[in-house]
Design a protein around this nucleic acid. Structure first.
Lengths: 296, 296
DNA sequence: TCGATCCATACCGTGAGGGTATCGGCCGAG
DNA sequence: CTCGGCCGATACCCTCACGGTATGGATCGA
């Protein structure tokens, strides 16, 4: 059997995500019959049924589940190949850093300042994006390096370096009965509703879900939810919100991540600088730390 | 720009490896003109020149170098998607283990015996193959798990677990002037020729290179070379060869490797069993260790 | 029972991709 | 200096894979 074409993978991913041939075809910009044929041919060539279909419902077989995740990974790899080669070709080399707004724990200005003095430094573009997009952007070559929180994210395909660890706090409306406590435990929050981060736009928001920190804080201010987050979000808090340390929550790690096996000099220099700056910050009490201590 | 097709990646890889359009076309089973066109179109679509060609020579640009490694990775991912989905589809689940002949340090029988008692165990197929093929086979889904030596291999894309570390010995002809020494240092071997492992068949063997341990031992027996190898190869030695511990060589680690992020129960059980058995072996002096001590 | 929904099949047209022939530049032999 | 051989690019043609439209057949709700 000769090798699958990326088109077939993309078609399958669309159908597997929509679980509906018509919508998938529309999303792909083709008609439904060619899509049906393409999927049948794919299954025939692979010798394994990937989808169970009735005229009313489409579901994934176990092989289909596996093939969906593998296909996504393969498509990422193809996109990454193109983007990284293009980047290597353009002489004007830059470093694209992805992070969440406020997700640098106040560390980034120092890192950038130190990095600029490095002989291997290149200009750094900073791209802010939602939590779940970041790892994706590094994997598919749109970004070179990212600031992530370990707990949040699937790190397969990435090399990482831990920058610092943070304790966690719970964000509450000021009027909440726990808002004046010096600290709480996870058990105290048992009855509260916690919003979920909505992964992709296709995902129907069947539960309380948010796309960014602003939405999250809005929900909390409305008394609809509370959230446990790294201590460094204190810097973004509105007046009507309080936050209280959670003593028994696992500390979360801020990590630097980049594509596995990539060691271009500009990137290597950035990683080196960032870890050095973070190590230094970890020793001497940081602004974040001091603010935390003051607030408790 | 829409997404590249795998065909274009495969075409580019062929040309980049051959550095000759005619031979690449022959290898791909197509004529040369379509290949030339496909590559030009690829470069036009990507907006980056990948190859410098004169009528006498073809070379890779920096972007081409990057694109070659990235393309190989992407093609592996596509192949892996198919193979893993097929495996998931066939109910008769098996575990394919790749290793080098004799590369298990005598550990494998115990591992297999212990694994068979595990409730998640499935039949294990053992595939013997050359050093450089193993990581490749795990990456592209032909194998589920492999025994590798850390120093040898590029481990990107693999999850690993260390099983045990071994000291290194040098294999010499019996007639060699160092053959009777109780131990040697790397400096003693400075003037000796060491064969290289030939990576791929396309690679012209411009230096002394071998494909497997048999060839290596043959070369040594002929007095053409010596080699520093893990102590466990003693088990395969011929009568006309001697081996001597190298005191200052970095100990090499035997590791278990499997595709990153894959945690199927049969695989997880195997990894668990193997590490347990290896840890136990490491504590109680193993047959291998004892033999080494006896020999010195 | 009828209509709506949704995937599959039948049939047709077009263009991407492959083949052959040939050109043009580069090198080495004589 | 010239000629011949090598090699990638170009020109031109043809075929079939892929996409489109029309329609069938199965299932479910009213």
């Amino acid at each position: 059997m000769d090798r699958l074409q990326t088109r077939e993978l993309a078609y399958f991913v669309a159908v597997a995500e929509e679980l509906h041939f018509g919508r998938a075809a529309e999303r792909l910009g083709i008609a439904q019959p060619p899509l049906s044929r393409a999927i049948s041919r794919l299954e025939r060539r692979m010798g394994v049924p990937l989808l169970e279909r009735t005229s009313r419902k489409v579901t994934l077989t176990p092989a289909g589940e596996v093939f969906l995740t593998e296909s996504r990974r393969a498509l990422d790899a193809v996109d990454a190949a193109v983007r990284r080669a293009q980047r290597a070709g353009r002489p004007a080399s830059r470093l694209v850093l992805v992070m969440k707004s406020g997700g640098d724990c106040g560390l980034l200005p120092d890192i950038l300042a130190a990095y600029e003095t490095d002989p291997d430094a290149v200009p750094v573009d900073i791209v802010l994006c939602s939590a779940h997009e970041r790892a994706q952007m590094i994997r598919d070559g749109r970004a070179d390096v990212g600031l992530l929180h370990r707990s949040n994210t699937d790190l397969t395909g990435l090399d990482t370096e831990e920058l610092l660890t943070e304790d966690q706090v719970v964000v509450l409306p000021r009027s909440h009965h726990l808002a004046d406590r010096a600290s709480v435990r996870l058990a105290d929050l048992a009855g509260e509703t916690m919003p979920h981060w909505s992964a992709d736009p296709h995902n129907t928001p069947n539960r309380l879900s948010v796309r960014d920190v602003g939405q999250l804080l809005q929900l909390i201010a409305l008394g609809r939810a509370v959230a446990v987050v790294p201590a460094s979000v204190r810097g973004q808090l509105r007046d009507d919100l309080a936050c209280v340390p959670v003593t028994d929550a696992q500390p979360t790690a801020l990590i630097l991540a980049w594509p596995q096996g990539h060691r271009a000099s500009a990137l290597a220099a950035f990683v080196r600088t960032a870890t050095t700056v973070a190590a230094h910050r970890q020793q001497t009490p940081s602004r974040v730390k001091r603010r935390r201590i003051h607030a408790t």
